[in-house]
Design a binder for these strands. Structure first.
Length: 482
RNA sequence: GGCCCCAUAGUGAAGUGGUUAACACACCAGCCUUUCACGCUGGCGACGCGGGUUCGAAUCCCGCUGGGGUCACCA
């Protein structure tokens, strides 16, 4: 990519919800672009829709990006050379440029009411015409405007659009163009004095010296009116790049009802931020060839490029996320894993505020490669809780054997041993021949008694971690119930 | 419906006129093993359709079909 200007990229969410995974990916790509080029990553809050934005949602955006580890250089909370970074605080700036357009005649006031416009649209629809503003207020005289104003009408401001082709070279898609005759004179300032998204965005992107506007493909059609605004204002048009969209399994736009869409939800399910980033990076981009797919942020910094971005939409495949997440979990150092597991163990009620991290690390070692997600700790309750004795299963397994006597013998063999897996294993194996039990009978019945189920990590390491007292207790209890 | 974008296995994707069309996830089978998991080996499975261009098309062009986006005083 040839860059003529210093790289300044931005992510400009509207705070109408929590941080969406789509936001996260856009943020990631922008972040990579900035960091690769010694550029600047800006976070701007596009909150011109006063009816919908909330402070809580803005906090959600921060939380999500921080969790992912994508730090920005300029933003509402950080300041920067172009403060403020919240559009609702930049109104006077927009008004200045609106006035400039009004003065030059590039824009004009429109007094049509919502109802009138609605009626107009319906008529066009019925007549199967293109739906666009008729241009009714285009050539109002000063007197007419006064009269309309006297009626109490509050005007909007529209940009005068002449018929021509507008186009741009998209950094990931190549040349894209459209015909302005289809869009009509569009509103740039609402009657309540708020600028419309497309207008505020253009003014801010210009003032903040954004070099590449990189965003999701849903903005492609916004690019055309935006270019018209750039031109009307006499601003240099930045470069654009539009990423493919992330879709639900049914190929519709990613939505709440098809699964989690917010970054925070994935955090709660026990996905690692590293895995999320890794996964997101590959939705809409590929390094090419058959390279390793487990990449760190540094790897991504090294490999990412707009040229390798994909143009077709991609389905958010949670199975692949699970695989990447499991890989990442297996990569973690044990103390780190244990730390990250703590909130999940707490949530299950397995531990309280007081816990022995050393002991948790031992547990982490046993379950590490069995966790697709951190919240899977719930599948290993027997390190913390006394399991029910699965009487039936044990009896079935040992139907022609004397289970009680067997367990007695085992208890006797291990009771006073140094409590270590190797010792335990050899002791148990030494009673095996006396008992005449098969491997399966021996190990599985023990597992059933100690873990309460047929599935667990390797038996003796588990017994070691469960501890002498609790293990013996569980065996006694099994004997009592058999 | 208009405009715009897109189209390689179920999914993510490599591929830029000549390949047995990679690789990864998922799935299936086997191996390993005291269970599970990990790991390893193998397997299933794709160029949406129709026309061109060309000695030769997944690759270029056109049409169709399909999917998506967008058509607000939302962003």
């Amino acid at each position: 990519m040839e860059l003529k200007r210093p790289v300044r990229v931005r992510m400009a969410p509207s705070p109408t919800g929590d941080a969406h995974v789509g936001h996260a990916r856009t943020a990631l790509y922008n972040y990579l672009l900035a960091r690769q080029n010694g550029g600047t990553f800006i976070l701007r809050i596009d909150d011109t829709d006063t009816k919908r934005n909330t402070e809580e949602a803005e906090a959600g955006v921060y939380r999500g990006l921080r969790w992912l580890g994508l730090d920005w250089d300029e933003g509402p909370d950080k300041g920067g050379p172009h403060v403020p970074y919240r559009q609702s605080e930049r109104l006077d700036i927009y008004h200045k440029y609106i006035q400039q357009l009004l003065d030059s005649g590039a824009a004009y006031e429109c007094f049509c009411t919502t109802e009138e416009l609605e009626a107009e649209r319906r008529a066009q629809m019925a007549a199967k015409e293109d739906i666009k503003y008729s241009g009714k207020c285009r050539n109002l005289t000063e007197q007419e405007r006064q009269a309309l104003r006297a009626e109490g009408r509050k005007p909007t401001v529209r940009l005068r659009v002449s018929n021509k082709k507008v186009g741009f070279h998209d950094l990931v898609r190549g040349w894209i163009e459209a015909d302005t005759s289809l869009m009509g004179d569009f509103i740039i300032l609402k009657s309540d004095g708020m600028p419309v998204y497309n207008f505020a965005t253009v003014v801010d992107d210009h003032l903040m010296q954004i070099s590449q506007v990189t965003r999701g493909a849903e903005h492609i059609s916004n690019t055309f009116p935006q270019i018209l605004i750039y031109e009307a204002l006499g601003f240099e048009v930045p470069q654009f790049a539009h990423f493919s969209l992330m879709l639900n399994e049914d190929r519709t736009k990613m939505s709440k009802r098809m699964g989690a869409t917010f970054v925070g939800e994935y955090a709660e399910m026990g996905y690692l931020p590293e895995a999320m980033l890794n996964f997101l990076a590959f939705l809409g981009w590929s390094p090419g060839g058959d390279e390793d797919e487990i990449l760190t942020l540094d790897d991504l910094l090294d490999k990412f490029s707009l040229e390798n971005c994909t143009v077709s939409n991609a389905i958010f495949d949670i199975k692949k996320l699970d695989w990447i997440n499991a890989k990442w979990i297996r990569r973690l150092e044990l103390p780190d894993l244990a730390q990250r597991l703590v909130p999940f163990w707490k949530k299950e009620g397995f531990i309280g505020e007081d816990y022995d991290l050393e002991h948790l690390i031992k547990i982490a070692r046993l379950i590490q490669e069995r966790l697709p997600r951190l919240d899977a700790v719930r599948d290993f309750p027997y390190f913390f809780r006394e399991p029910e004795v699965p009487v039936e299963e044990i009896q079935q397994l040992l139907k022609d054997k004397d289970a009680k006597a067997g367990f007695q013998a085992i208890i006797a063999a291990i009771r006073d041993l140094p409590w270590q897996e190797a010792e335990l294993e050899s002791a148990v194996r030494s009673v095996q021949s006396d008992l005449g039990w098969s491997n399966k009978e021996l190990f599985m019945s023990l597992r059933l008694a100690v873990c309460g189920g047929k599935v667990s990590p390797p038996l003796f390491p588990v017994i070691e971690v469960v501890g002498r007292q609790r293990t013996l207790q569980r065996l006694e209890r099994a004997i009592a119930q058999l």
